[in-house]
Design a protein around this nucleic acid. Structure first.
Lengths: 364, 364
DNA sequence: AATTGGCACTCTGCCCTGCACAGTGCCAGC
DNA sequence: GCTGGCACTGTGCAGGGCAGAGTGCCAATT
């Protein structure tokens, strides 16, 4: 049923561990042998349970806050618990329908992301988080150049998912409007539908190759594009590093497990910085289904006392980003996991509708 | 020296009240007659001070948390204190230079706003806040239309302050690229340099007047523009309601006066909602210098336990927005006020440089 | 009449104690 | 290997004692 753990743990020990974690998640207070014996469903006495608990403690799955109190799960305990139930039943239909309902109505991609985070944050009462699709994973649809002033050109980039980005580019010389139009046409014909990463790659190679033989349009395009993509390298603080949308952070202020101000400060500082969050979420971008980071597993300071449950969302089979929930380590995983999973799916399909040019902003 | 309060309060009572508030701000604990007598600089005995304090309590300026402890200022007490020292000496030159230093280096307007909030939040250790200039207060520089698909046009609006906005407009029919270019030219010639509110007004009037006699370009422009400005009316949730940039919220988690979770939750909920904040800040947009809202004075639930110190920032004499600090009611106003004041000025002048097209993004 | 010192009173915060409760660890018996 | 029993230990809570800080009032002083 489970991995290598079964080598170490008897069937009974596993069952007790699971029960213990479940009881602790439900109740929030350390669980003792008596309670566990009663609730676990096994026909054993508290004394026996004590022996098993002693083993489990030795193995690092549970711990007692002080000499004589019940046990609480350690990080490893949660991990075991979560792993043993990851094949959780999908959300029941009613609940799914409710979530689905929330996605109805017109919305642009940004709004959809916000709606999705709000949704998971409200439903779980924790904080919702979602990564904004990164430029590189997204396909180029159209670009236009606008003469701003002497040596600045405004590039407007429209991607297949319907998002629009601006970038001001410093260029060496003034380009006439018609030059800019030509350059834009060149781009639009040549690169439409290819990913931004690809566009960039091709562009840089071609530019390096033969600067001489190119026509004016191409040369203009290349010249302008240099500024367009150069930014990405140095300006690491810039748009292209990706972004996350957070919501419901204030819910975490009400979570008793996080009542300590130090914890909260670290957490909110991490929220503000966003960088670590992004890195963490990026890791689960490649994962197929739900990923779970328990406490310090995430490796980020501010997140020591919380767990992060994430699921990637996809449009047409491409992983665009990750949706997740940040809550206390003691959270009802069996409820949160299906919610995150379902919302990520719904977000994906809502986005794929929007990406279709006919439906964008028309509400159809 | 002061207003009508002098009718009620003797010189001595005022001095004691000021000292009391100052002592409480510095120390954080209720101040008793003994301490106050010692620190106030007046040659009076604690017993005398007790009598005066009794009067002040009667008048509602101070209160005792419980029968036998020192007094703390009430909201009215803070208000008196703040009013009596609003003509605070400007920031000393060193400090001003330091702040100034932080604004150096290239930055676009959005970055400047963020830098300014970060700055006040770091310097004060409270939360910084700044309103993003509202479209209406800002002057039109340039517009361009881009054909997106069948019945959607992307409008790119560049304002004098160097910001760029996109808006997707649903239009009745397809417009050819040349039509769109013509329409844009029409806009750019006719409206450059006028405020968006003005543009809008003129546009709507003209459109209503004579739809017939207009040339094609004008008609196209009008048709497209209808979508552009219609949005503003209904889509109240949209860009035009203004926005605020917040930073350093997590600093408030460390403020002992705000240690209660209820308080914090309300506060952070207000931060997330932003709407109330915006409304509050808008009020001080018209004020000439620093405005201060103490506790419940603001009238917004989440802000009951904090004070807001704001100052508008101006570019070329136009108030574009408001910069402020949100901190505990018990804050060192005499330090915060000059900081907010100075930062708002610096932000204004930094923005005015950026608005100049030559310097935008070139760092000169 | 204003100011002052003195005095009784009160509330807080802290530490200590005692006590019920919950749960463990271990041992001896089955 | 499981179980019941028993001694032990830590927590949480209520109560009591005590020092500290500060008030309110009164009578004396200037």
């Amino acid at each position: 049923m489970v991995d290598k753990l079964s080598e170490n743990l008897s069937e009974r020990a596993e069952a007790l561990l699971r029960s213990l974690v479940q009881l602790y998640i439900d109740g929030g207070s350390p669980v003792g042998s008596r309670t566990l014996a009663r609730e676990a469903g096994l026909e054993v006495s508290p004394a026996t349970v004590r022996n098993v608990m002693s083993d489990l403690e030795e193995l690092g799955y549970i711990a007692s806050p002080h000499t004589s109190s019940g046990r609480i799960p350690t990080q490893a305990g949660y991990r075991f618990f979560v792993d043993s139930m990851l094949r959780v039943e999908p959300l029941n239909n009613d609940a799914f329908g409710q979530l689905e309902h929330e996605f109805e109505g017109r919305a642009d991609p940004q709004q959809l992301l916000e709606r999705a985070t709000n949704l998971v944050s409200q439903v779980t009462s924790f904080a919702g988080i979602v990564t904004v699709p990164r430029d590189q994973d997204v396909r180029f649809r159209q670009i236009e150049f606008l003469d701003l002033s002497e040596n600045r050109v405004l590039a407007i980039l429209v991607t297949e998912d319907g998002r629009v980005q601006n970038r001001v580019i410093a260029v060496e010389r003034k380009f006439s409007p018609s030059e800019l139009v030509e350059a834009a046409n060149f781009f639009n014909h040549k690169y439409r539908g290819r990913s931004l990463a690809e566009v960039r790659h091709v562009l840089l190679t071609e530019m390096a190759r033969d600067n001489e033989q190119m026509g004016t349009a191409v040369r203009t395009a290349a010249s302008v594009a240099r500024g367009l993509f150069d930014d990405d390298e140095e300006g690491a603080e810039n748009a292209d590093v990706g972004d996350v949308v957070l919501s419901g952070e204030q819910n975490l202020l009400d979570v008793p497990d996080l009542a300590e101000l130090d914890t909260l400060r670290d957490l909110f500082t991490a929220f503000k910085a966003k960088h670590d969050l992004l890195e963490l979420l990026d890791k689960s971008l490649k994962a197929d289904g739900v990923s779970i980071y328990i406490g310090e597993e995430s490796g980020y300071k501010g997140l020591n006392n919380v767990s992060v449950v994430t699921a990637p969302y996809t449009v047409d089979g491409n992983c665009l980003g990750v949706l997740g929930v940040i809550g206390p380590t003691r959270m009802a995983y069996s409820e949160v996991i299906p919610i995150v999973d379902a919302t990520a799916r719904l977000l994906g399909s809502a986005l794929s509708l929007t990406g279709d040019s006919h439906s964008l902003l028309t509400g159809e």
